[in-house]
Design a binder for these strands. Structure first.
Length: 667
DNA sequence: GACTAACGTTTTTTT
DNA sequence: AACGTTAGTC
């Protein structure tokens, strides 16, 4: 059997996890314990036991995790089996479910999904319209409250603050009127459909008999309820996670789900993977000594399979400039002296803002680097605009994308017209598109604007017609539409630099290319829009495709590993972050640091500064209280001055050798 | 309706 | 320090 090899290479705990296929199973997989390998072997084992591939479902949180798991499985089983099973995110699973059954909740099946920026745009409008209280309420605050309510299983109308509740109701009505759902709705509605409609539930339970949930520590209570609907007796469900790596509590993740798994699925088989293959003993010991300070966790002590190792350095820095320069120099020196690749180095930080100085230091020394995250592709203006055009080709009645590009590029339909059209559409309970099409409306506006509106209608309708006829490739239609709208010249005009111009053009082109790739695979335009809506930022195979040292936030680093890791800014207020000190979630910050430390394979350096520039102002810093929690056995406390004092500069070195040579010559 | 200038706010993490 | 928003002007 093909799997014999992988089976034998597993350790006893892993082997047990792979062997037990029936009933609830919880795999507590510490950092670097071969989690993904174990899960993929387990799924391969299912196939070996003649479980039909279509019955297998594996749910992840990110698209990246899903595609990684898909790839790993594909390497172990037949092509057909890999294609027949379902490996996807919670959200895309829900989209699939709702495309079939959302009509039961009074939405049309061609609903669209609004992104975060769409949500903000809508909420801004509502705040202006409802402008009840005169204090400035930020859209994100209201949206956050709504999201929290939805994830806790409450009706947004039940939010305590009356004004917020009022906005929440208006928001939800608006989305419904536009046949649009937000990210949270996907889960809320899917759970609702399953709970209230036994027929749908039975179909799903019949279809997916074997459910695996990855990164289970990141599930929130809504996802837990969804899972309960999805999995029926005899509960062939396997969850994999590590409570010590739960770092998404701020968006509702409940460590409780992993701590109380058996409350939901009785008598689970609990398997602990504690053998770490990634890090040296020194790194692991330090990590263990930190996480021990957290209460109420599944006791777990990672054992290292790699003895010894370099000491973990804790370096005191005078300021953030020196910190960045020190690290850049170390990378430079490490690369040439120890013969490492750029890709072997990673610098981890708490907030994106901390990357600026590091980037600068890298650039000065011509060290190639890759920044993970930061400006996300799908938040780029031109990308969102082009996607809005694409969305109109499916349903011009979607107000949000319509309003987005109504005057992008400028075509003489400005804000005032947009407001009039929106108001008219509201009065007549129609979409903005219908308002623009309605002669009764267009006669109420000036003739110049009217002609602009008519031209716009013709532009969109013409392109949509080509789509509906199904004769042309949607990518070609979209390309032609963008060209006809003269979108590129308009966006280019707003650019300051050549490289910006180039970036915009590439953004537009890559949306079209990506649509083409989708339609090549036989997917519909709607499916492309779904994928784009759910595709989040840091998932464009960034890491593999780009070369260089890695600059990355602690959150984004989870699941990755690097031979040499620098973890910067171990200062009170940054790590732990001041906000989490206020929120009383210091435990989570400790886990965040734990995640950071356990990314390191061979060598780890922690740094903290005495001062740092914040908002253009110099501020003093205190060392993180976490430093005192680390066990000293494998620590090397040192400072910037110590290291620079001990290591002579290149000048001093050549001088020294010059003298030496002189002495030798003399003799 | 478009452009510019001043102002205020931001910096935790993201499906 | 840098970005986005808003108000004021053409």
């Amino acid at each position: 059997m093909a799997n014999d090899f992988s089976f034998r290479s597993l350790n006893p705990a892993q082997r047990q996890a792979v062997a037990v296929l029936d009933g609830p199973v919880m795999i507590l997989a510490g950092a670097g314990t071969g989690k993904t390998r174990t899960v993929t072997c387990r799924i391969a084992h299912m196939l070996e036991k003649k479980i039909p591939a279509p019955e297998i479902l594996a749910v992840t949180f990110t698209n990246k995790a899903a595609s990684e798991m898909r790839d790993r499985i594909a390497g172990m089983v037949t092509k057909k089996a890999a294609a027949d099973m379902t490996v996807c995110t919670f959200h895309s699973l829900c989209v699939r479910l709702l495309r079939g059954g959302i009509d039961k909740l009074g939405y049309k099946k061609n609903f669209s999904i609004c992104s975060h920026s769409d949500q903000v745009g809508l909420m801004k409008q509502l705040l202006v319209r409802k402008g009840g209280s005169d204090e400035k309420v930020k859209p994100d605050t209201v949206l956050g409250a709504i999201s929290k309510a939805k994830n806790m299983g409450l009706d947004p109308a039940a939010i305590e603050d009356d004004y917020f509740a009022h906005l929440a109701v208006a928001y939800q009505n608006e989305l419904r009127a536009q046949n649009t759902v937000d990210f949270d709705d996907l889960l809320v509605f899917a759970e609702k459909v399953l709970r209230e409609h036994a027929d749908v539930r039975d179909v799903f339970r019949e279809r997916y008999q074997r459910v695996t949930v990855d990164e289970f520590q990141d599930t929130n209570s809504l996802q837990m309820r969804l899972l309960q609907q999805l999995v029926g007796k005899p509960y062939h469900v396997c969850v994999v996670g590590d409570d010590d790596q739960s770092i998404y509590g701020w968006r509702g993740a409940e460590v409780a789900n992993i701590l109380e798994f058996e409350r939901f699925f009785p008598h689970p088989k609990v398997i602990r993977l504690e053998e770490n293959y990634r890090s040296t003993h020194a790194v692991l010991h330090t990590a263990n000594s930190l996480i021990r300070h957290n209460r109420g966790r599944h006791e777990k002590v990672l054992r290292s399979t790699r003895l010894g190792g370099d000491l973990v350095r804790i370096v005191a820095m005078p300021g953030d400039d020196e910190e960045a320069e020190f690290i850049a120099e170390e990378i430079l020196a490490g690369k040439s002296a120890v013969g490492r690749q750029w890709e072997d180095f990673a610098v981890l930080f708490r907030t994106n803002g901390q990357s600026r100085k590091l980037e600068l230091a890298m650039r000065e020394r011509k060290i190639p680097y890759r920044m993970v995250g930061a400006q996300s592709f799908y938040d780029r203006r031109e990308v969102r605009d082009v996607l809005a055009y694409a969305q109109l080709l499916v349903s011009p009645e979607a107000d949000v994308p319509l309003l987005r590009i109504l005057n992008a590029p400028n075509r003489g339909i400005g804000q005032s017209t947009a407001v009039l059209a929106t108001e008219w559409s509201r009065e007549h309970h129609e979409s903005v598109w219908q308002a623009l099409c309605d002669p009764n409306f267009t006669h109420s506006i000036g003739s110049k604007t009217r002609h602009s509106v008519e031209a716009f209608i013709a532009l969109i309708a013409g392109a949509k017609n080509r789509i509906d006829l199904k004769r042309d490739n949607p990518a070609d239609v979209l390309h032609a539409l963008i060209h006809e709208a003269a979108y590129l010249p308009w966006i280019e005009r707003g650019c300051k630099t050549d490289s910006e111009r180039q970036q915009r053009a590439e953004g537009i082109q890559s949306v079209i290319d990506s649509l083409r790739a989708h339609t090549m695979k036989g997917k519909k335009l709607q499916a492309f829009l779904d994928d784009s809506a759910l595709a989040s930022d840091r998932e464009d195979e960034d890491l593999e495709s780009k070369q260089g040292a890695t600059l990355i936030t602690l959150h984004a680093s989870k699941g990755l590993e690097f031979p040499i890791v620098f973890l910067v800014g171990l200062e009170e207020g940054y790590l732990p972050h001041s906000r989490s000190i206020a929120d009383g979630t210091k435990d989570e910050e400790r886990r965040l640091l734990y995640v950071g430390i356990t990314r390191a394979q061979d060598n780890l350096t922690l740094t903290y500064c005495a001062k740092r520039i914040k908002w253009g102002q110099e501020t003093g810093c205190q060392p993180s209280s976490f430093i005192a929690e680390l066990d000293d056995t494998y620590l090397d406390h040192t400072s910037y001055d110590d290291i620079l004092g001990a290591e002579p500069s290149a000048d001093e070195l050549s001088h020294f050798f010059g003298n030496l040579k002189g002495m030798l010559d003399d003799t």
